[in-house]
Design a protein around this nucleic acid. Sequence first.
DNA 1: CTGGTCTCCTGATCGC
DNA 2: TGCGATCAGGAGACCA
Length: 297
Amino acid sequence: MPELPEVESVRRSLEPHLLGRRISAVTLHRRDVLIAPGDPTGGFSRQRSSIPPRRVGAAELLVGATIEQILRRGKQLAVFARSSPAAPTRILVVQLGMSGQFLYRAPGQRLDEADHVHAVWRIETRDGTGRLVFRDPRRFGQLRAFPDPDSLETHWHSLGPDALTIQPDALTTPLAGSTRAIKAALLDQSLLAGVGNIYADESLFSAGIRPDRPAGSLSSRELERLAHAIRGILSSAVAAGGSTLRDYTDADGRSGGYQTAHRVYARAGRPCTVCATTLSVAWLGQRTTVWCPRCQL
DNA sequence: CTGGTCTCCTGATCGC
DNA sequence: TGCGATCAGGAGACCA
């Protein structure tokens, strides 16, 4: 389940393989994983829409272009590429969703996971042709094409500040007066980009704040603690290469190591690592939520 | 506008 | 051994 640390690990593992390399071809096995820019449904109704999926242009998938940079905002990756120094920079945004993987295979290296592969890019290197693979069994992931940086900026405008560098001030205004649970607010990508279920629970535990507290009830002192906890948890997780619960890997197929540091996520009913109190569980913000009833107030 | 619920999808797991 | 039910979850649509 890629959240910010996993997506950042994918980004970092892709860079050495892709920067400066040219994409010579792409095979799109499932057309509906690519959301056309300006799709009013945001791609949500792609299966049920009576309108046939748009014909996909190779340019949208960066064919013929050289990759210049890979950025991340929240849980989204953006691959920037140009076909010539004078050409406009095109961008492909990748959202991994629940089960998405972005894998790189060097020339001659085989891909073991051949099922649920939705797109394969051919990457030209000095040693031959490598492959960039988008694989996503549950298909909650998406690819989005943008013709220029401005349209990407418009798209990213709907995201809140990146959670890795979140400052308490950025939380104060949007949460003031809010009655919804702080856990639900942390999962709202328009408020804060990058936190998902795992790191929301871990951050709230680290900050000593109950997940069901009304967001507007947090004092400025608590918001400071929370922002500090989010940055700390996320940066530690990035340093560990993310959390691998089931099948997450980076672009090189390496698993993360942060799952061993989880203190509340998936530990309902087990003793708190700090005070040994049995951890509580509830359904909150449409997610299973675990916390320590003694450490979190 | 806000916040809660539904929905998309597949694989793992569990009870019988 | 096999099968159906259940759960997991990111995020947009939808609705009160």
